[in-house]
Design a protein around this nucleic acid. Sequence first.
DNA 1: CCTCTGGCTGGAAACGATTCCTAATTCTAA
DNA 2: TTAGAATTAGGAATCGTTTCCAGCCAGAGG
Lengths: 338, 338
Amino acid sequence: MKHNRVTIHHVAKKAGVAISSVSRVLSNHADVSDDMRIKVEKAVSELGYEPDYLAQSLRKGATQTIGFMIRDITNPLFSIVAQSAEFELRKAGYSIILINSHGDSSVEKENFSLFKRRRIDGIIASLVSEDAAQTKSIINNLGIPIVLLDREIAGLKASAVICNHSIGVKEATSDLIKNGHKRIAFVSGMKDLLITRSRLKGFEDACTEGGIKIDPSYLRLGKFSEDYSYHEILDLFGSKKKPTAIVAGGIGASAGALRALKDLKLKVGKDVAFIAVDEWPMFDLLSSDLSSVYRDPDEIGRESARLILNLITGGPTSQAVVQTHYRKRTSSRRVLNG
Amino acid sequence: MKHNRVTIHHVAKKAGVAISSVSRVLSNHADVSDDMRIKVEKAVSELGYEPDYLAQSLRKGATQTIGFMIRDITNPLFSIVAQSAEFELRKAGYSIILINSHGDSSVEKENFSLFKRRRIDGIIASLVSEDAAQTKSIINNLGIPIVLLDREIAGLKASAVICNHSIGVKEATSDLIKNGHKRIAFVSGMKDLLITRSRLKGFEDACTEGGIKIDPSYLRLGKFSEDYSYHEILDLFGSKKKPTAIVAGGIGASAGALRALKDLKLKVGKDVAFIAVDEWPMFDLLSSDLSSVYRDPDEIGRESARLILNLITGGPTSQAVVQTHYRKRTSSRRVLNG
DNA sequence: CCTCTGGCTGGAAACGATTCCTAATTCTAA
DNA sequence: TTAGAATTAGGAATCGTTTCCAGCCAGAGG
């Protein structure tokens, strides 16, 4: 089985030249005579030779591979990001190794070490948390260029794709207020993440401008999971001061909230207003015509690819900002008892 | 920058032993004295040494990497398959390289060659087509173990995960017939794919048993795309003999069909019955309570991982069958003019 | 006391490329 | 004609491991 792999050795022998000459021809080195080029190319095509990545990588110290680590590949937003990043990176000759961290920071840690051992050239990651001091030191000691998705960590040598969440959420919340909503709930992930803080800022700004005082019990900022959101919404509607509108930050939050409303037999857009932050496949086929805060996942993927390539070729760390905007549909209207 | 990578060389020097001894300790070779083991382990932990995958791979001829090639990673079903396969393979020490073929068989061809150059240990693939003779010869010449998802190619040395589509579709179609439907349309992908033939068989069997003659114009078997399905449904409902029920084979087919019905202002479950083959995230939040044919994507991922590991360790090619079953909900009921 | 066995160890050859260095050849110019 | 420069080719080192092979030393058996 070993003898069926054709190496540069075989090519050299067949062409009757030295190994180094074959290598020079294939890497378009300047000092190659026409005669040599022809001989080698003939041998290459006759043998169907293709250089081995492994050996090249070992020698050159670059694997042409990018590690893509996310918390959950089944999240439709991330899968689009992964697809478009892969598309861009492949054009530049890179492959991607996909790793799930399952939202577990110890798995995340292992993954970084795996990346290092595999001599990954660069990393694109959506980290579990921003405050883990350990994560910070791991990344800094890794010596591998990294692009963070929607995370901002002080003192970290990393590029980042940051979405401007506050703008879209502000527009959306303002629209709710304009439609007469005063009791607006906001469900999303942990407050220590930039993404949550940014959304919260948009929410607060809109309330301030609209002259609405935020009741802290309407802020449910705990986890991105469906489960969390589901139970928080049930809890809110079990209380005396039921909200008339909900802003759900993230796909999980939206799914959990919509399920809760369904179980409560409350009709979205009629009994309660709703804004989904982020959309998912077949969004338009849902039972209600949801207003949303949109960002383009393709753009996130493209930008992250651009940033990591930039870093790999020695460029400085930088940030790319992806805008969000409000897509007004019918679920944000005034409701019966609003 | 080169000097900060700690190699087996440094460990050997620090421990005052030969490189080969370090390697023996780390690979749990039998011929190692306790004294040696202790010295080496001390040096390893003090230096924080981790063996380099590249060099190991080059020497051993195995990269501990699986290539995962699918037509579209944003397909929610595939992304779950990818996730569960990754989970299983990681437990066995493998990483996965994810590649999109974008449903393009020339890209697919390139990808195979990339896998070979990267010395991938095994491939899990959802191929674009089954009949391309070229693909067959490429795979056979590749010399890399491969597991096919839902494809059956004669004369190919490959394992496969096959879903038993016909059973679920038959159950579903029988239910439609029992509910009085006679004009049932079936939209799905190309007829030359096993997956389509298998679904069609279930459909035909149910019709035969139910005493219904199939009108060929109700069979729309062209592509898996949303677009195709959308236009075929519009076409069907523009004709004289409108169907009273639709079976949509695949997520794309379902999406396209549901959009067409929405545009036609036909209510699913009321004006027309509908069966979705395969579910997607937040299926339960759709505007209608869709009956479906279900298969477990997690199981597909697990099985494909199991089969490829089996092949890599020298086992024979084999098949795993994943069952489908009918999930009866309300969209399959009798309808107004049915 | 000598040989044989067997456990351990170190040295060196792979694995398949790239690249530096040196040498041979050709060409130009004095 | 010959020195010196410019091309071009080959040889060898290198990347970081694993693994084969040979040798050393200690203990056992005669």
